[in-house]
Write a protein that binds this DNA or RNA. Structure first.
Lengths: 243, 243
DNA sequence: ACCTGAACACCGTTCAAGT
DNA sequence: ACCTGAACACCGTTCAAGT
């Protein structure tokens, strides 16, 4: 986390003045992330941030030019947390899957930041670029030429963004009992049945089955299932290219 | 647009009091959408909205309970604009493609609202539900069983959301000359070359080729290309199911 | 030179006071 | 009964005034 800052435990290099550490970018982002993770994006204000740090709200401007910079810094920091498992001996499919999974889990671990993560990443932030190489490498090793590799990578990234968004906005706000199996499906069915009869015949058919079927389909398997679809589609591209 | 309201031109049923139409939900949302489309989400405030309508800001609360309701109303209204081409005689693939295209174009026509569209839709707004039946119908006709149809639909929706987001945040803010071909690719290349040498060997290889290649690859074809990937993946599911 | 905090120009929303 | 607008409790940020 810290690089060459005074270490909290070791307190060498003179005791921190007035009994508390000096303000710096890292400490600010740490406090901001704590606020956002625990209380949500709308709780983050420069004034609240100052209070959290025990300093004048304006002091933050010494280290970051404004609120927007604080939030971008947060996104950047969260991206730097993304860790891929070692890819030794894995197939390109396994590597694409591992990448997408690591990315969606990064989003899951900061649900209140998801909206900003997917927006900033879509604007091709440097943070996103830092993290993308293993995805491109896997697709390259699949034998895809440059244009197809970029297309496949974009497809995977777009899907993960959309999926992270859908998980976030359908998640229980951290209180309440863990969501039951097929709660989503039963909610959809209820909504559908509240509509004028037979406006949505297919969806009704689909969700009637899914709401009954109480297999342990929580939301992770649907992410994996979608990745199956994407990987099959990408595989089809490799045949096109070989044949 | 209006259903049984006093028509602006015909001015039957008594002239509007004080020379202007009475306030209603529809007129409020109309004004709000104008503000958002022309000046962006951050320009929308209850006070600004009141000014746009020539009424006291508080009058809006008579018709909508708060700002959040105004924005949801906006999303709802935009969804109701989605129009699919008639699907007569089309294959299921063509119908899925037509659905995804109509959806992304809806997002394109309100770029400043995209973030809210994809968030609200991900929360399964009623508006989204209204619009989804043709997608499910196409996938059902592809021969997919309920679970697979729902999975495929979710994959398509998540991808479209992510893609709409990526188009929005990389779009020119409406001023400036139309973006040149491969501007994105050349921007990526510049970013990559600014990084420490060979940190990103694969991306460098990929974007060196794409930045050179000045074919007319604007951004629409990449959406179509991604849909090819998705459709190929979904097709693979139908074989699994048949075989 | 550095930092602070008062002040500015906004917010969304409540609610008492007016008609 | 209906509507208004003053007021409340916030914002992000500027900048003059202090040390």
């Amino acid at each position: 986390m810290s690089r060459e800052e005074p270490v909290r435990s070791g307190r060498k290099m003179g005791r921190p003045r007035a009994g508390q550490e000096r303000l710096n970018r890292e400490r600010i982002l740490e406090a901001a992330l704590r606020i956002v993770d625990e209380e949500g994006m709308e709780a983050l204000s420069m004034r609240r941030l100052g209070a959290e740090l025990g300093v004048d709200p304006m002091s933050v401007y010494r280290h970051l030019p404004g609120k927007e910079a604080v939030v971008s810094g947060l996104v950047e920091q969260v991206f730097s947390e993304m860790r891929l498992p070692p890819s030794g001996g894995a197939t390109w499919q396994e590597r694409v899957r591992a990448w997408a999974t690591a990315y969606v889990e990064l989003a899951r671990s900061h649900p209140n930041l998801v909206l900003r993560i997917v927006s900033d990443a879509a604007a091709v932030s440097d943070a996103m670029l830092q993290v993308s190489e293993p995805l491109y490498a896997a697709l390259w090793d699949a034998g895809l030429p440059p244009r197809e590799a970029a297309l496949a990578a974009g497809t995977v990234v777009d899907f993960v963004h959309g999926h992270a968004l859908s998980e976030e906005s359908s998640s229980t706000p951290d209180d309440a009992a863990p969501v039951e199996d097929s709660a989503f499906e039963r909610d959809m069915l209820a909504r559908l049945e509240a509509q004028p009869a037979e406006s949505f015949p297919t969806m009704l058919r689909v969700f009637r089955v899914l709401a009954e079927d109480a297999t342990d389909m929580n939301r992770h398997p649907v992410f994996d299932g979608s990745l199956d679809v994407l990987l099959a589609g990408i595989e089809a591209m490799t045949y096109d290219n070989a044949g």
